[in-house]
C-alpha cells in the first residue's frame, strides 16, 4: 500500500502512521453522548472511508486519505489542514 503525500509524492505505507476515521471534532461543551460517539463509536464501513494518516517519517503532514477498506485502494489524498479549512 502506497500513499501519495501531496507534498512529497508517493511513498511506502511504512512512512505513515494511522490515526483512524477522520471525524469532525465536537464542540468542547458538547454533551457526553456526543463525545462518547466521537471517541468510541465508529461507522466502520467495508468500503470507502475518510481517515487521517500522518506522514510521520516524511514531511510530518497530517493527511486526509479516502481509502477503500475492502480493497486497500487509495481513492483521494488531501492535506488535512486544507480539508478542514
Amino acid at each position: 500500500m502506497r500513499i501519495c503525500c501531496p507534498l512529497c509524492g508517493a511513498r511506502d505505507r511504512r512512512e505513515y502512521s494511522y490515526r483512524g476515521a477522520a471525524l469532525p471534532l465536537p464542540d468542547l461543551a458538547a454533551d457526553v453522548e456526543v463525545w462518547h460517539a466521537h471517541v468510541h463509536l465508529r461507522q466502520n464501513p467495508a468500503g470507502p472511508l475518510e481517515e487521517l494518516w500522518q506522514h510521520e517519517m516524511g514531511c510530518g503532514a497530517w493527511l486526509k486519505v479516502t481509502r477503500n477498506t475492502a480493497t486497500h485502494e487509495i481513492l483521494a489524498v488531501t492535506l488535512a489542514e486544507e480539508a478542514c479549512a
Partner: peptide, 10 residues
Amino acid sequence: FYSSYAARGN
C-alpha cells in the same frame, strides 16, 4: 494497524 476488511495484509 489500519482499518481493513481485506482478508490480506501488507
